Simulated scan of single mutants.
Amino acid sequence: MGKGKKKTNKRTKKGPNDSDSIPLDQDENFYFIAGYTDGGFAFGITWEEQAEIERKVRERELHYATKRSLELPEVQLRKIVDVMNRPYDEFAVAYLNVRMGNVFTINELDGDEEDERLRCLVEGEDRLDFEPIPSLDWMQRMGDLFDFANTVQDEVLKKKLKAVLESGRKRNQRFRSLVKSSNPEEYIRLTDFLQMCDRERAIEWLRSIGIELRLLEDVTGANRQEDGNLPTPI
């Protein structure tokens, strides 16, 4: 973020892609003025910094438009799902290497030499090979639970489940507890249903970044043995 001259008369300009956007506080040095120091110096995003941001956005959009194929075993897809299901942490950013299929996390707060090495990779010449993995949105999970409630045959239980989703705190936990205490078989079905939702969401995210996934068959049976140890979706 740049820092510049003392506060002058503000004026409003628009960047090349801002014809319909809300006017920003700008001047000849700054595309966006975030504020001013106590001494009256402006700080924010310079025009040069904004041009670089837009260049990278165009570069990545063009990259997404080029379809790529990625071969992964089912166990590796589950790793992507697990990362998407982790609680959001602004200081721990997970990436997928779209060329190799491996997943790794960079600690942005107090990382070590390995974190720094990985950061150089994702910001270097091969940066388009690395995609930050999104976290599961709370509203997405609420949508999953609502969809499951609609599949419940017991009308009394269905009504109770929808009531849980409509108000109150800890809806996710309360929903699960209600299903588990009402019908253990339905709880197993709920777990399978959420795993299916998470799997489809991960595949859809890959498609959104131009990745056509090819799942490889398990040839040793080792991956199948892990199925009983799958983490419960959040």
Rank of each mutant, 00 (worst) to 15 (best):
M1V: 10
K6R: 15
K7N: 06
K10W: 09
R11M: 09
R11L: 15
T12A: 15
K14N: 08
K14E: 07
P16F: 14
D18K: 07
S19P: 10
S19G: 12
P23M: 01
D27K: 03
D27H: 03
A34F: 15
G35Q: 01
Y36M: 00
G39I: 09
G39E: 10
G39P: 08
F41T: 08
A42S: 03
I45M: 08
T46V: 01
W47G: 00
E48V: 09
E49V: 13
Q50P: 05
Q50A: 07
A51W: 05
E52T: 05
E52Y: 05
K56T: 10
E59D: 06
E61F: 14
H63W: 14
Y64P: 01
A65C: 15
A65V: 13
T66L: 15
L72R: 01
L72A: 02
P73N: 06
V75W: 12
V75L: 15
L77R: 04
L77S: 01
L77Y: 03
V81E: 03
D82H: 08
D82W: 11
N85I: 03
P87G: 07
P87M: 03
D89M: 05
A92G: 09
V93L: 12
V93S: 09
V98Q: 06
R99G: 10
M100V: 14
G101E: 02
V103K: 01
I106C: 10
L109D: 15
D110G: 13
D112E: 05
E114C: 11
D115N: 03
E116R: 11
L118E: 12
R119H: 13
V122P: 07
G124T: 02
D126A: 12
D129R: 08
E131K: 11
E131F: 09
P134H: 06
S135M: 04
S135F: 04
L136P: 13
D137S: 13
D137N: 12
M142H: 09
G143N: 04
D144N: 07
D144H: 06
F146P: 09
D147P: 08
A149C: 01
V152T: 00
V152L: 02
E155G: 07
L157F: 04
L161Q: 00
V164S: 01
E166T: 08
S167T: 15
K170G: 13
K170I: 09
R171F: 06
N172E: 09
N172A: 11
R174M: 06
F175T: 03
F175C: 02
R176D: 09
S177L: 14
S177G: 14
L178F: 05
L178S: 05
L178K: 07
V179S: 04
V179T: 04
K180M: 11
E185Y: 09
E186R: 05
E186T: 05
I188C: 08
L190N: 00
Q195E: 11
Q195W: 11
Q195T: 11
R201P: 05
A202W: 00
I203A: 12
I203E: 15
W205Q: 04
S208W: 02
G210E: 00
I211L: 02
I211C: 02
L213F: 02
L213G: 04
R214W: 12
R214F: 10
V219C: 11
T220I: 08
T220Y: 08
A222E: 06
Q225C: 08
L230V: 07
L230A: 07
L230F: 04
